[in-house]
Design a protein around this nucleic acid. Structure first.
Lengths: 168, 168
DNA sequence: CAGAGAAAGTTTGAATTCAAACTATTTGGG
DNA sequence: CCCAAATAGTTTGAATTCAAACTTTCTCTG
């Protein structure tokens, strides 16, 4: 009896309900979420971050690394804690960040002579060179943001600063 | 800042260089960094996120969870991919996020009847209740942001949206 | 000047996220 | 109709980050 053959191809035994017409599912509505500043803040930061990282991709330096190098350049002999405060990162995040920059030869770390708990940080010549390059990328990146912000840029940045300061 | 001045005091055998006068190290200058929109964007997002998470702390629901629940409420039977697109998260981040929400009983996941690859998501009654509560917190949180933004809020949000959309 | 407490860094553990590789299913072109 | 390519979701690995615990050193009070 060929009865056994009916097994496969005839019908997929697993589908109980009708296949239903192929309707490309509509993209979801964001609804009330769109009105929340916090949500829009995250989307914007995310987009900005991603573009910066992609652009400076060759150098493999993310925005956070760039910020650290900038602070190091403008504050020779700064300590790790102070650096962390400046770029708003926990000290336990600063440690591996600096180990990486040191491994790349961009930063030098020395025990402070006045406080043996602290580490004194300085940009190396190589670090200054890399930073010089990154600044060009950062400026171009920020120019795009400037364009998008338009004439309200000053007020826009002022609000961002107030949020960072007053939200704690 | 020659922190080194030689000194007498006792003789801690380990100290070669002098202790030097105690100068509270000046807080670092942010310098050019302050002018970059991208940097300010990160600080603001960070602050906003942290406050939201702390406020809704009891429920242990971070802003990302809140956004997901909102989209689920407004788009019944949405798929994971569509959700990910809506809240700008990779599908591989959406998987564990939803497993967590399911484990908490806030979301139900079912294989789609029309496309057996997809998962169909719906908010449970418990999920709707929790969301209801979270919305109150989110509104209060955003009210603070509104205050900070002041009368420029509309333009501020418009810029954030343009950044999210046009930076890609 | 001695000891309590603060501060700088490091380590460890957990959370979040992306990207890439993989599985299962569906679609579309020849 | 069939197979190549696309798509949905999961898994895995790496990166980033915070918080808490810990070590070492410093400060300050009594």
């Amino acid at each position: 009896m060929p009865a056994t053959v009916k097994v496969e191809s005839g019908k997929r035994p697993r589908r109980e309900t009708a296949p239903a017409r192929r309707v490309p599912p509509p993209e979801p509505k964001l609804g009330a979420l769109q009105g929340f500043i916090g949500f829009n803040l995250r989307l914007a930061q995310d987009a900005s971050f991603r573009v910066f990282a992609r652009k400076s991709g060759q150098r493999d330096i993310m925005p956070g690394r760039f910020a650290a190098l900038m602070v190091l350049r403008d504050n020779p002999n700064i300590t790790q804690s102070a650096l962390g405060r400046a770029i708003a990162r926990d000290k336990s995040s600063v440690t591996p960040l600096l180990q990486d920059l040191q491994r790349r030869g961009l930063v030098k770390r020395m025990r402070s002579t006045t406080d043996r708990r602290s580490v004194t940080l300085t940009l190396t010549a190589a670090g200054a060179r890399v930073l010089q390059d990154l600044i060009l990328h950062a400026r171009e990146h920020d120019r795009k943001l400037d364009e998008i912000a338009g004439p309200s840029k000053a007020e826009f940045v002022a609000i961002l600063r107030r949020i960072a300061d007053h939200m704690v």
